[in-house]
Each structure stands twice: as C-alpha cells, then as structure tokens.
Write a protein that binds this DNA or RNA. Structure first.
Lengths: 170, 170
DNA sequence: GACGGGATCGCCGGGATAATTA
DNA sequence: TCTAATTATCCCGGCGATCCCG
C-alpha cells in the first residue's frame, strides 16, 4: 500500500462516492477512474479496439503530450502509457527488445548502464521501467514501434504515433 | 491535507498521469476525475476575440502597467491578468510549463523552491499562483509567450506584449 | 534565506552524426 | 571489401543560478 496526500475538498468528494460501508479508497478510485474493470472474455474485439483507440487518443491529444515539445519527454510519456495500457504485454515486449549489445528497457537502471558504454538511462515515470536515452530520434521511434507492434496494437495507431514523432523535426 | 491509502498498482497508474515534475496527487486526481473543469461557453469566436482584445488592451494601457518600469512587476501583472482572463486555461498552460529542471509556475512556493537551487519564487497577486523570478528577461518573455500561446491568445496580442517587454531594455 | 533584479557565463542534456561493429 | 545496423562521441543550444550592479 502507498500513501498519498490530497486536499480536504477532494477527500470529501471521494468519500461521497462510497458505494458501501467500509469501501476503501482504492476501490472507489478505481471505479471513478474506470480502470481495471475486469476485461472478461465476453468482450468482443470491437469494444476492445475502441477502448484501445480511446486510451491512446486521449494521450496523444492531451495537454501534457501536446504541450511537450521535447522528443525524449514524449518518448517517455508514450512508454508510460503503453505500460499502463497493459503491463503484462508491455513487459513481454520490453524484455525481448534490444540492440546488438544494449538492452533498451529494463526494470533497473544498472542493467541498462552495464549493457553499453553511455546509455543514459531514464526512468519511465509511473512505471517500474527504465529506458536507454542515448539514441537518435530514429531509434526512439523504432523502440516505440517495436513495443507497440509486439503488444498487438493496431497498425493505424502505430502509424499515427510514428507520424507525430517524425513531424516533430522542429 | 488528508492522507489516503491506495494500492501499489493504482499508485503507479496515478503517478503515470503526472503532467510535470512535482505535481501533487490532488492536482492529478482532479484532472482525472474532471472536477473543476471549465464549462464550455457558447460565446462565438468574434465576441470572444473582442472581449480578449479589450481586456488585455485595458491592462497594457493602464496607468499601473505603463507606470511600472520594472520588468518583474510587469511580468507579474501580466500573469495575473492572464489568470483572471481564464483561470482554467491558465492552469493548464501553467502546469505544463517548465524548464529542464525547474517548474516555472505552481500553486505553492515550496514546489518551486524545491525544483531548483535559487528560484526566488514570487507570488502572482490576485491569483493562487507563484512564479519563479530568478531568470533573465528573455526567459520571462518566453514564459509569457508560452502561456499566452497555450491559452490560445491571438498572435497579434502576443506580439504586442513581447514588443512591450523587448522595448523595455532600459 | 533575506537587498532585488536580471545579465552573463558555464554546465548539461538532447540527439545528430561520426565511428564502430555486424 | 562494401553496406547496413547500432553504438556512443561530441557539438550546440537551452537552461540554471551565480554574481555583479543599481
């Protein structure tokens, strides 16, 4: 369990959403944030695709992402979103991704540092992962592309993301 | 401030939505829960533009502003006007604005102080915000410019403001 | 932490490109 | 040897905050 601090008004707001006596904060928040709704096998592929679309569309059009002009920050933001979209799939994609010597993603800074000479690992915020950052833009795009593809994300979404990065050359 | 306990995964999810270094949990949650979201106005673009013009024109030609010869005071005056013009838009623009280490605007002095070594925060009067003041004029102009641009203020008005600051070199 | 403002200069991060390896 | 793939050096510009000046 983690502890977070919130202001009084927000606390009251959350408390007011209690569905049953003794419901804990995590449960209320999960319901309000609509996360971790058990995705049952009954869900058809269309709704899953819609969900995927909405999730990434939200990020790509968010103030955070749009206002962020640096390539690395967008890169890290996107990796964070990919992880949170599906940690298990992300994990599989991440571990199998590497260059000829360097490991691109790992759960600890050190293993990235020792896999190359000057990898400059960066923390992927909101995630247990670290990424290499000493690469050119082309490779950053390649990393995103590989992960998305390995996670089974639609071609359309992948192309859209690539487009955004490519069009960012100042 | 109230303290609540949430599980690890949920914590990571919330942390992943951080817009900028040092953003507090309340701010993230308020955004996610869409509390205090501005109500969309039906004002058409023409009248909005007129209104915008009048508001800023009034400030820029006011005695307070014109007679104020120090750059910081004008800087703060302008930020105050921007906030009061549209607090919701200002807030979005402010939270996504930062340098490589320092946060430029925040609702509390402390988070500005801890984001750099000697930021010299100043209160933006008539506003819940604080700004960094330990910057050169160019950066102050950049801050104003970014905020105005992110708030969707017209190019003309932005240029006019920049002009005023630039012509103030002694 | 107490003088305040902000120009100047030096550091550091970003990432293109040269170097190296496959 | 030539080319493609990958690494990581190193330059440039952005940013921070020291320090000088009023």
């Amino acid at each position: 369990m983690k502890t977070i601090e919130i202001d009084e008004e927000l606390y009251q707001f959350i408390a007011a959403q209690t569905k049953h006596i003794g419901e804990d904060a995590s449960s209320i928040l999960r319901r309000l944030l609509k996360i971790n709704q058990p995705v049952k096998t009954t869900i058809n592929t269309t709704s899953q695709a819609n969900n995927q679309y909405t999730l990434f569309n939200d990020l790509l059009t968010s103030d955070t992402f749009v206002n962020e002009k640096s390539i690395i920050n967008r890169f890290i933001l996107l990796l964070g979103a990919l992880y949170n979209y599906n940690p298990a799939l992300f994990s599989i994609a991440a571990t199998s991704l590497h260059g000829s010597k360097r490991q691109y993603l790992a759960k600890d800074k050190e293993s990235l540092e020792t896999s190359g000479k000057n990898t400059k690992p960066r923390e992927v915020i909101g995630t247990p992962y670290w990424v290499i950052s000493n690469t050119n833009t082309a490779r950053k795009v390649y990393i995103i592309e590989s992960i998305m593809s390995d996670m089974g994300i639609s071609e359309n979404m992948i192309n859209r993301v690539i487009e955004i990065f490519s069009s960012q050359n100042k």
